[in-house]
Computed example of a mutant assay.
Amino acid sequence: MVQQRLDRAQIVEAAIAFVDGCGLDELTMRRLGTALEVEAMALYRHISGRADLLEAMVDELIDGLFDDELMTEDSRSWEEYLQRVANATRKLAVAHPRIFPLIATQPPQAPWLRPPLRSIRWVEDFLSSLQAFGFSDTEAVGAYKAFTSFLVGALLLQASSMTPEALGEEDGASSQTDLSEYPTVERLQDLLMEDHAQREFDDALDDLIERIRTSTEK
C-alpha cells in the first residue's frame, strides 16, 4: 500500500466523510486507513485510537459552526443570536445525520459541557453573547441549559430519521410495512409522512425564546 503524508486534520476530515457515507458502525482505523490508502498504523502517529478519533470529529464539526455564514455576522439581539446558532446547528444535523447522534451522545470533556454546544469555546461565546445583551450570570447559564436541551431534543430525532438506514435507501428501495392490522395508522399514513421539520423547528424555537424572555423579565 502506498504511503502518503498525512496530518491529524486530514485524518479527521476523512473520518467525517467516511461516516457520512458508510455509517458510524463501519468506522475502524483499518477501514479508514484503506480509504486513505495508507496502513492503519500510519494513522496512529496522529490519532491515539478510535475514541480519540470520534472526539476529534465532534470537535471539528462543532467548532466549524463558527464558520457558518449564519455565525459570521453580528446579531442585533439575543433572540437573533439564538436563531442564528439554532439554525446553524440544524444545518449541521441535516448535513451529517449519521454523525449528529454522536455529537449529541459522546461524553463531553467536562460535565458542565452540554451537547451539542459542547466545547469550552462555545460556552464562552454563548454566555458572553447573552451577557452582552443584559443577561445576568444565572439567566445566561439557564438559557444555555434550556437552549442545548432544545437543540438535542429537536434535532436528534430529525437527524436519525434522515439517515439512509431510516429512509430504507441502503438496498436501493424503501421498505414497506404491512399496516392492515392498524387501520387508523394506515388511514393517516400520508399525514404522518408529511415533512414540516423546518416549521416545527422554528415554532419550537419561538416558544423557547418566549419562555426565556418571560423568565428574564421577572
Score class of each variant (00 low, 15 high):
79 E>Q: 15
215 S>I: 05
126 F>S: 01
167 L>T: 11
23 G>L: 06
166 A>W: 01
158 Q>C: 00
203 D>A: 15
126 F>L: 02
90 R>P: 06
113 L>R: 10
67 D>I: 06
126 F>T: 06
85 V>Q: 00
162 M>I: 08
155 L>I: 02
135 F>S: 00
36 L>F: 08
35 A>C: 08
215 S>Y: 10
104 A>C: 11
201 F>T: 03
182 Y>A: 14
151 L>E: 00
199 R>K: 13
115 P>D: 02
137 D>K: 02
96 H>N: 04
124 E>T: 13
27 L>C: 00
67 D>P: 00
196 H>I: 08
89 T>C: 11
14 A>L: 10
196 H>N: 14
122 W>K: 09
16 I>M: 05
56 A>K: 05
41 M>C: 08
129 S>Y: 11
26 E>I: 01
49 G>M: 07
31 R>E: 07
67 D>L: 13
148 T>V: 03
14 A>V: 02
130 L>A: 02
86 A>C: 04
173 A>D: 14
39 E>N: 15
22 C>Q: 15
11 I>E: 07
56 A>L: 05
139 E>I: 03
88 A>V: 00
157 L>F: 14
184 T>A: 13
20 D>S: 08
10 Q>S: 13
31 R>Q: 11
150 F>P: 03
6 L>F: 02
31 R>N: 12
174 S>P: 05
145 K>I: 12
161 S>A: 15
183 P>R: 10
36 L>D: 09
132 A>I: 06
74 D>V: 14
87 N>A: 02
133 F>C: 05
109 Q>D: 14
204 A>F: 00
75 S>I: 09
13 E>Y: 03
61 L>T: 08
188 L>K: 14
91 K>R: 15
96 H>D: 05
144 Y>F: 12
61 L>C: 05
83 Q>I: 01
189 Q>G: 09
11 I>M: 04
171 D>C: 13
109 Q>K: 14
43 L>E: 04
114 R>G: 11
82 L>D: 06
53 L>I: 02
213 R>H: 14
207 D>C: 03
119 S>E: 07
49 G>S: 10
151 L>D: 04
18 F>M: 04
37 E>V: 09
5 R>A: 14
59 D>L: 11
31 R>S: 10
152 V>K: 09
140 A>H: 02
65 L>R: 01
211 R>K: 15
27 L>H: 07
103 I>G: 10
204 A>R: 10
162 M>N: 10
51 A>R: 10
46 H>C: 01
200 E>D: 15
85 V>N: 02
138 T>R: 01
195 D>S: 12
81 Y>L: 11
